[in-house]
């Protein structure tokens, strides 16, 4: 049962997962609810382990992204409590960051007081690296294409919803736009990155 607390809507864990999975228009409200509800808990966690306000913000947002993507890809067990999940992800992200920064002197966060959760490497890509990559793409892609591709691929929205959001007359136009934008993006990538060299570096 959804409840209203002040100006904010409250959701149960089941409702959060359901709304995110069905790509509901209520998604933004759910994200705001998750953010404002669980931020305080993560703030305590990170601050008590040497983090500053910026660390709290970075870690919590990354944890929320991990949760969001896991739910979208049906990789989130609905039995898990969202608060506990976010706490565990945040804790692991923070431990990893400390290790990376060689700050971790006493690893008291290894205690298994919380359910084990394995973070995939993709969950731990550094923001600086990702930001640099995104900037490269953004500069060349254009705003409309960015919106259409993000909505269709990352947010997994229907063509109908995208057409409505973008003000297109019908779904077919949205579909064509998505195709053209994908081609454009691919071209940008092929032109900006030496794929042969990259492949050689990877092998």
């Amino acid at each position: 049962m959804m409840k209203r607390a002040g100006n904010r809507q409250d959701y149960t864990d089941e409702e959060v997962v359901r709304i995110l999975r069905k790509r509901s228009s209520e998604e933004d409200k759910v994200i705001e609810y998750l953010y404002t509800t669980h931020y305080g808990m993560i703030k305590k966690l990170i601050r008590s382990r040497g983090g500053n306000d910026q660390d709290v913000q970075d870690i919590f947002q990354d944890a929320l992204l991990v949760f969001y993507e896991r739910v979208k890809s049906d990789d989130f067990k609905t039995q898990a409590k969202i608060g506990t999940y976010l706490y565990t992800v945040s804790r692991n992200l923070w431990v990893n960051r400390l290790k990376k920064n060689m700050k971790l002197v006493h690893d008291d966060m290894r205690e298994e007081r919380y359910p084990a959760l394995t973070l995939l490497p993709k969950d731990q890509l550094t923001r600086a690296e990702e930001n640099a990559f995104v900037k490269l793409i953004l500069n060349a892609l254009g705003d409309d294409c960015k919106k259409v591709l993000t909505a269709a691929v990352y947010l997994d929205k229907s063509m109908k919803a995208i057409a409505q959001e973008m003000g297109y007359d019908n779904e077919q136009i949205a579909r064509n736009k998505k195709y053209k934008c994908l081609q454009k993006l691919k071209k940008i990538i092929e032109e900006s990155i030496d794929l042969t060299a990259l492949l050689n570096e990877l092998r």
Partner: peptide, 25 residues
Amino acid sequence: ADLITDESIRSLGRSELRQKMHAIH
């Protein structure tokens, strides 16, 4: 190229979501 294209979109999506979260914050 396909892989990087997919990941580019994913990164764009993440970037957009981060912006939303930044505004909420």
